[in-house]
Amino acid sequence: MAGQHKYSVLLPTYNERENLPVIVWLLTKTFQENNIDYEIIVIDDNSPDGTLEIAKQLQKIYGEDRILLRPRAGKLGLGTAYVHGIQHATGDFIFILDADMSHHPKFMTEMIRLQQAKNLDVVTGTRYAGNGGVYGWDLKRKVISRGANFLATVLLRPGVSDLTGSFRLYKKEVLAKLISSCISKGYVFQMEMMVRARQFNFTIGEVPITFVDRVFGDSKMGAMEIVGFAKGLLQLFVAV
């Protein structure tokens, strides 16, 4: 389905020993079944749980041209992980998704289809539209998520329904440009990418996705995340 194109997946990992093999298995399955050329770039920040060890074993199975290991010496954060990863990407399109299986690779085919149909610069997964949804969220988490998204939409008017989602497909040069112009960190980084994309008049499409809370490992969602979100949102409000 993908013609001449090659898709590079950026997979930042921190303590994803249990998740990494499964997400890689699902990614390769999806790519192979649809005859898509791909590579998976694992950016591990020296995870204490030995994620890199598992990544090496996977590389032996799938090949060094399919699984690229680009580890870093310490936990340097998500934003810089993408910067680091894209430098090593040889594909003309880049997928970004979390390694914790919250994002199911099966949605990649729909994202590619939409991208090709409209020659879009960015396709983003949305939990908030169409057949999108979540699993494992209680009422409180839903209220926080919806409230935060509403606030962000009112302040930033980005034109997409899921601002904080992070399952996305980019043209490589578009992602490079966006990354180099983004200033924020963490959660807010994902929002800023969309806001900047609109600012540069890049075309954006949306594909409904389901989001399953991480099965393995601990979730970090807490009060600090909310405070960080609010601060970042205000910074974007005055900066963009």
Binding site: G132, K142, V212
Partner: peptide
């Protein structure tokens, strides 16, 4: 907000 147990 849709719940998606089938995805799980």
């Amino acid at each position: 907000f849709r719940d998606c147990p089938e995805a799980y």
